[in-house]
Amino acid sequence: MPDPNIRVAVSDDDEALGELDRATWSTLHEVMPPAQPPYRPFFDEEHRPEDHLVAEVAGEVVGYIRLVRPTPLVSNAHVRQIRGLAVAGTARGQGVGRALLRGACAEARRQGATRITLRVLGHNTPARSLYAAEGFAVEGVLPGEFHLAGRYVDDVLMGRGLTTY
């Protein structure tokens, strides 16, 4: 697979991103139940196109990452938070997630951020390994925060600085 093209999402990506989001749903990374028809638009007032980077290969959307300010407070305007990452099954293990993470870090720096954070479910070993490989460290754990598929799962808080990378 060729290297993915990482770009800012546009409103025309709504349908493809909605389909990708539904196709990649799993209790490995999702705390909400799966979406049911009729499906809501992917983009709305809280999830704007400009808050997403999209990975494309040969013109096909194969992934996205959502990057937002964690709060509207001026006191943490220097922080960006990843609030969603999805990679199509056919593109997994081929560097798409890594490219999206690197793109998000670059975009956060471009926006003036000096720190980036995320939350990941404790049992999501592939994601945690990727984040660690890209410089994210565990900064906190909320033990048993979620009950998914019959078991309690930790909510792991990770972060990294953006001044050196």
Rank of each mutant, 00 (worst) to 15 (best):
P126K: 01
R109M: 01
M158W: 10
A149F: 14
R48K: 15
A16T: 07
D154C: 08
S129M: 02
P34Y: 06
Y165F: 15
E45Y: 13
P143Q: 10
D21R: 05
T114H: 11
F42D: 13
E50C: 08
R80D: 07
F42L: 06
L121K: 04
Q94G: 04
L142W: 14
L28D: 12
D3N: 04
A91C: 07
R151A: 09
A132T: 13
L100N: 00
G97L: 06
T27S: 12
S26F: 09
L53V: 06
M32T: 13
G144M: 01
R109V: 07
G135C: 02
H78G: 10
D3H: 13
R92L: 05
M32G: 00
M158Q: 10
L17A: 02
R7P: 05
R160F: 07
Q36C: 04
A149H: 14
P126A: 00
H78R: 10
V10S: 08
R102G: 02
V68W: 09
L85D: 07
R22P: 00
V141G: 03
G63L: 08
P49I: 09
A58V: 08
G59D: 12
V54G: 07
I65P: 03
A137Q: 15
G93A: 06
M32D: 14
D21M: 04
E46G: 13
D12G: 12
R98T: 05
A16K: 10
T114G: 03
D12A: 15
V138P: 01
P49Q: 12
R151P: 00
R110H: 14
E134H: 04
R128H: 03
G84M: 10
L85E: 07
T117I: 09
G122D: 05
G89L: 08
V138C: 12
L67Y: 13
L28Q: 13
S75W: 15
